[in-house]
């Protein structure tokens, strides 16, 4: 298996990450090493096995559909990197 530089750049783009040119090779090699190790899972015969998503025993976790407003919006907004009139400020998206 050989992971290509282009693949790393494609994956980074999917993950909204920018990788510096000089770091690409390191990320490429790390990913390749880990995937080579991970290939050990192919030694297990899983033809008749279902997938396990988690280990919670809860099925159909239902509750009343009640509105419960969070009151401390001041504290929430204090964490915003930029805000105006109690709204999150972002760069212009419509020209």
């Amino acid at each position: 298996m050989d992971i290509k530089k282009e693949e790393i750049l494609h994956i980074a783009k999917l993950a909204s990450l920018k990788i510096k040119e000089e770091e690409i090779e390191e990320y490429r090699k790390n990913l390749q090493d880990i995937l080579e190790f991970a290939n050990i899972i192919n030694s297990v015969d899983t033809e008749y096995l279902e997938e396990t998503n988690g280990t919670s025993t809860n099925i159909n976790f239902l509750r009343e559909d009640e509105v419960n407003n969070f009151k401390d919006t001041d504290q929430l907004m204090k964490n915003a990197p930029e805000q105006e009139n109690n709204m999150f400020k972002i760069p212009k998206v419509i020209n």
């Binding site: 693949e7 790393i8 994956i11 980074a12 999917l14 993950a15 990450l17 990320y27 790390n30 990913l31 880990i34 995937l35 991970a38 899972i41 192919n42 297990v44 899983t46 096995l49 279902e50 997938e51 396990t52 998503n53």
Partner: peptide, 27 residues
């Protein structure tokens, strides 16, 4: 590094070989 590995195993073309397979091995 982990976001990249995670995105890779969930990406189209590798999902079955890694993520789905891992969930079966989890069973």
């Amino acid at each position: 590094r982990r976001i990249i590995l995670g995105t890779y195993v969930l990406s189209s073309g590798y999902y079955d070989a890694y993520y789905k397979k891992a969930q079966k091995v989890r069973t």
